[in-house]
């Protein structure tokens, strides 16, 4: 038998699956793309045909307009593309995010896309699938990254809010996934007040609500008087935290929800006062425990700090290699 997984060709611009003649998350327009989830660095516009979960397709439509040729694939449903059986299973990253399970001539390869293992009230949990090759991300692939309990982190925002009734808490959160997850967690902790959002997050929040994720009362923050915003939680994209937009807010406590907040210097660089370590990516323990749980014959590492994860695999006699994909650094997560 030939080399394990030699029917899959990693390119800097994505993963090409030869016997199915399709690409996974290509960063350039391709005739046929299977897309793991809706983040812009994985789901770009311009492909001829797209196969993804209905939620991911809805996100892509919200961002790029209607696709001429899109195949919605329900989780678990097996589709034959060329000579490859393809099915999608939940990755737990954001709403609609899926791992791509591929069977070809008795070999199974799972491309996890981006994933996490801890509970997320806005999406289905990651489902481990036994396989020969597990293609993993490594965004937080260093042992310094251990995300604490999400609820405790979200509670910090509420504590800050209650301790400072004259101010507002401005939470920087990625517009797709993170923002909705933070809002949903706030609701679960009993915060029923209207939550104010930046205009750039409106469409995706509406879509989440349409797809059944109840986010409670949301109000656009833009143009609101300072007095109205005192004592409120405002969610905005990370880029707006220290930008002109936030200058008109009532003395905001600048918070940011991101796995990078684990590193003090990262938080300081962004002028963050209240770092909330909340990530949609697996932390070091989740990455390594997932590999041990799935126990694949080989691990392929796509993007992030792959060196450390490769080293860890080596010390445990797990075969591993790096795939160098470009443009996948998720700075805002």
């Amino acid at each position: 038998m030939a080399t394990l997984g030699d029917w899959i060709k990693p390119h800097p611009t994505g993963i090409y699956v030869e016997p199915g003649d399709f690409w996974i998350d290509p960063s350039e327009a391709q005739p046929m793309a299977v897309v793991t989830h809706g983040h812009a660095d994985h789901a770009r516009s311009g492909h001829g045909h797209v196969l993804a979960t209905p939620e991911t397709l809805a996100i892509m439509e919200t961002r790029y307009g209607t696709y001429p040729a899109a195949t919605p694939a329900e989780m678990g449903e097996v589709q034959r593309i060329g000579e490859v059986d393809v099915s999608l299973v939940p990755a737990g990253h954001v709403l609609g995010s899926a791992q791509i399970v591929m069977d070809y001539r008795g070999e199974r390869i799972v491309a996890s896309g981006d994933y996490k293992r801890r509970p997320d009230p806005t999406c289905a949990p990651f489902q481990p699938v036994p396989c020969d090759v597990f293609i993993t991300e490594a965004t937080f692939g260093l042992p310094v990254f251990r995300h604490p309990d999400t609820e405790e982190e979200v509670r910090k925002a509420l504590d800050a809010l209650h301790a400072n009734p004259e101010r507002c808490v401005l939470v920087g959160a990625y517009a797709l996934g993170k923002a909705q997850r933070v809002i949903r967690h706030l609701r679960d902790l009993g915060h029923d007040d209207p939550i104010y959002i930046h205009g750039a997050q409106e469409r995706l929040c509406t879509l989440y609500q349409d797809l059944g994720v109840n986010l409670g009362p949301l109000v656009l923050a833009t143009g609101k008087k300072k007095d109205e915003l005192k004592g409120r939680i405002i969610v905005c994209p990370p880029g707006a935290l220290n930008d002109r937009w936030s200058r008109r807010l009532p003395d905001p406590i600048t918070a940011m929800a991101s796995g990078w907040m684990r590193i003090r210097q990262r938080a300081r660089q962004r002028n963050v006062e209240l770092p909330l370590i909340i990530s949609d990516h697996a932390d070091w323990d989740e990455l390594t425990e997932t590999i041990l749980e799935i126990a694949p014959k080989e691990v392929w590492v796509t993007h992030g700090r792959e060196d450390a994860l490769l080293h860890w695999c080596m010390t445990r006699q797990i075969r591993a290699r790096a795939l160098s994909l470009v443009g996948r650094e998720d700075e805002d997560d």
Binding site: R305, D307, H311
Partner: peptide, 11 residues
């Protein structure tokens, strides 16, 4: 693991 420590320290 000293290698992981070194990588982490650099990061």
């Amino acid at each position: 693991d000293p290698v992981l420590f070194k990588m982490s320290r650099a990061y």
